[in-house]
Simulated assay, not measured.
Amino acid sequence: MSGRAYLVDDDEAIRDSLGWLLESRGVACLSYRSAEDFLDEWDPALAGCLLLDIRMDGMSGPELFDILRERGSRLPVIFLTGHGDVPMAVSALKKGAFDFVEKPCNDNELVNRVIEALRLDANQRAAASGADSLNSRLGRLTTREREVMERILAGKLNKIIAEDLQISMRTVEVHRANLFEKMGVRTAVELAQLLAGRR
């Protein structure tokens, strides 16, 4: 499974038992005894999900959550709450937390939620990487190739494109072949499908 669970809880017994439980289901886990410790090691490239206790000595779970959001973190966050913390957890959900689980919790249910959060994170990263890849391909096109592409997407034939841009039909064919190669497509239909989400 890609990514890992990052467990932040100031209770050593909970860190040990949850860490063991996650590892037993094939989920890699790193534990931290405070929000500050996690923040020291946080990196925007971290993949996985965050299991975060609401009440801790020092910085609280919601405070860490707010700081991570300000820094652009998209890690799905599951809050671990005591009975009296439910209103705080609901407030965190409204701000974009993935879920909250009351302690003591059903072990398998918790791990299932962690696995769902890991899947969500992997899917979001794949989508972002696809968008980056598309942007990088578009960035390699010359101005003329972009002009030809816009007209291809508008359904214009090579002959019309040549008249529009006042170039020869042969030149249009060369630009067309180059832009198809750079975009990694074989046909105008594939090009339209690739760019459908952007238009």
Rank of each mutant, 00 (worst) to 15 (best):
A188K: 15
D121F: 04
R25S: 11
R119Q: 14
E145V: 08
A89N: 02
D16Y: 12
G197C: 00
N158V: 04
D43Y: 02
T187Y: 03
A45S: 13
R4C: 11
L64Y: 13
T187Q: 00
G72W: 08
A47K: 01
K159F: 04
M149A: 02
D9W: 10
S31K: 10
L52N: 00
S73T: 04
W42T: 03
E116Y: 12
C49I: 11
D43S: 15
A97L: 09
L18Y: 15
G48M: 08
L52R: 00
D10A: 05
W20S: 14
S2N: 14
P87V: 09
T187N: 09
A97M: 09
A177D: 00
R25F: 13
L30E: 15
D107R: 12
L51Q: 06
L110M: 10
A188F: 13
D9T: 06
V172R: 07
R25W: 10
F100G: 03
A13W: 09
A13T: 14
R140M: 12
R25A: 12
L75G: 05
K103Y: 05
I67G: 01
D121I: 01
R4Q: 15
L165C: 03
M169N: 11
M88D: 11
D10Y: 00
V189G: 01
R140V: 07
L39C: 02
M169H: 04
R4F: 07
G48R: 08
L80R: 12
A28L: 10
E147T: 06
M183K: 04
F79R: 05
Y6K: 07
M183L: 13
E147P: 01
S60N: 08
A97Y: 08
V174P: 00
V101L: 13
D57Q: 13
E181R: 14
K95E: 04
D99N: 12
K94I: 06
I161M: 09
L50W: 00
M59P: 01
L195D: 05
T143D: 15
G96T: 01
V86P: 04
L179A: 01
M56D: 01
R137G: 03
F38E: 01
N135V: 10
E12L: 12
L141H: 10
S31C: 15
L134C: 03
E70P: 07
S34M: 02
I160Y: 02
L134W: 06
P76I: 09
V174C: 03
S168G: 14
Q193E: 15
H83N: 09
D164A: 03
E163K: 13
N178R: 15
A45E: 13
V185N: 07
M149H: 00
A192Y: 09
E145Q: 15
D132C: 02
V114L: 00
V8T: 08
R15A: 02
E150G: 15
A92L: 00
F38D: 06
G184L: 00
K94G: 10
M56N: 05
V86C: 03
A196W: 07
R199D: 11
K103I: 06
M169P: 07
E23Q: 05
